[in-house]
C-alpha cells in the first residue's frame, strides 16, 4: 500500500517532468537549442492562470487558453531576444541568455505576483479517489493522460505529417530546408511557442498540487531537463517515458529510503545512465561520418 501510493503520485509528478521534457525536446529537434528558462515559463503559466481566475474571476475555460497563449507569446519573444541573435552567430550563448531571461521573469513575477506562495483551487484536486488503498486525485490522472496523450500526438505528428518532418529537417540542414520551401525561422519560432505553451500547461496542471509561487519552476525546470536528457532528447515518447521513470524513481526512493536520499539517488541515477548510455535511454547517436 505504501508503495502503491508513492507510485501513483510519482507517475503524476513524472508526467509533469514529461511535459516539460517534451518542451525541451521540441526546441531541440528544431533548433538544437533549448530554453533553460523552461521552469520560469512553467511558473508563468501558473501565475497567469492564477491571476486570471482568482484575480479577475475568469472561468477556467477562458483562463486556460489565455495563459497558454501568454506562455506561447513569451516563447516567441524569448526566441527573438535570447536565442536567435546567438544562433545566428553560431554561438552557444543562448544557454546563458535563456538562464538570464529566466532570472528576469522569475524576479519580475516576484514583484507583480508577490512573494508568497498562493494556493490554486481546483475541483479536480478536492476529493481523492481511493485506488489500491491509496488516495489519488482526479487531477493526477488528468496530468498523466495529458502527458501520454501529448507524447503520442507528437510522435504521430513527426512520423506521419509533412509539417512534422519539416520541423525535424530544419536543424539538420537549414540551407537545404529553406530550398525545400521550409521557413526555418518560422519553424523555430513555432517550436519555441509550442515548447513554452507546454511548460505553461505543466505549470497550470501542477499548480493545484504544489501551489503557485514565483520560484515554483526552478527545481521542476531542472528535473524536466533531466527527464529530457534521460530520454535522449530526440524522441517525444522517450522523453515522456523518462519523465515517468524519473517520477517513479523519486517516489520509490522517498518511500523506501527517505526523502533525504531522493535528490542524491535520482541525480546519481542520471549520471550512471549517461555513463552507460551517452545518448539517453531511448536516444541514438547522431550520424557522424568521417
Amino acid at each position: 500500500m505504501l508503495l502503491a501510493a508513492a507510485l501513483v503520485s510519482g507517475l503524476a509528478i513524472g508526467a509533469m517532468y514529461g511535459l516539460l521534457a517534451l518542451g525541451y525536446h521540441v526546441t531541440w529537434v528544431v533548433s538544437r537549442s533549448v530554453n533553460f528558462a523552461q521552469g520560469s515559463v512553467m511558473m508563468l503559466g501558473a501565475v497567469i492562470a492564477f491571476s486570471l481566475m482568482l484575480g479577475w474571476g475568469w472561468p477556467w475555460p477562458l483562463a486556460l487558453p489565455a495563459a497558454l497563449a501568454g506562455c506561447a507569446g513569451f516563447g516567441v519573444v524569448l526566441e527573438r531576444v535570447a536565442v536567435r541573435p546567438f544562433r545566428a552567430r553560431g554561438s552557444e550563448s543562448w544557454l546563458m541568455a535563456t538562464v538570464a531571461a529566466g532570472m528576469l521573469v522569475e524576479n519580475a513575477a516576484l514583484f507583480v505576483f508577490g512573494k508568497e506562495p498562493r494556493g490554486m483551487p481546483s475541483a479536480l484536486a478536492r476529493h481523492p479517489l481511493m485506488l489500491f488503498g491509496a488516495g489519488i486525485l482526479p487531477l493526477h490522472l488528468v496530468i498523466l493522460l495529458t502527458g501520454l496523450g501529448l507524447a503520442g500526438a507528437f510522435l504521430v505528428a513527426t512520423r506521419a505529417t509533412p509539417y512534422g518532418k519539416a520541423l525535424l529537417a530544419v536543424v539538420q540542414n537549414p540551407r537545404a530546408a529553406q530550398l525545400m520551401g521550409i521557413d526555418a525561422t518560422r519553424m523555430t519560432v513555432f517550436a519555441y511557442a509550442l515548447s513554452s505553451a507546454l511548460a505553461g500547461l505543466a505549470g497550470i496542471l501542477i499548480a493545484p498540487l504544489i501551489n503557485v509561487s514565483a520560484d515554483m519552476g526552478f527545481v521542476f525546470g531542472i528535473k524536466g531537463f533531466a527527464a529530457a536528457i534521460l530520454g535522449g532528447l530526440e524522441t517525444p515518447s522517450g522523453v515522456v517515458l523518462a519523465g515517468l521513470l524519473l517520477g517513479l524513481a523519486e517516489a520509490s526512493i522517498t518511500a523506501l529510503i527517505g526523502s533525504g536520499a531522493t535528490v542524491m539517488a535520482s541525480f546519481g541515477l542520471v549520471i550512471l545512465t549517461l555513463y552507460f548510455r551517452p545518448h539517453g535511454l531511448f536516444g541514438r547517436a547522431e550520424i557522424r561520418k568521417v
Binding site: 531542472i222 533531466a226 529530457a228 536528457i229 541525480f267 549517461l274
Partner: peptide
C-alpha cells in the same frame, strides 16, 4: 545539453 546535465547532476 547532455554534458550540461551530467555536471548539474554532479552538483546536486
Amino acid at each position: 545539453p547532455y554534458l550540461a546535465m551530467i555536471t548539474i547532476a554532479a552538483a546536486f
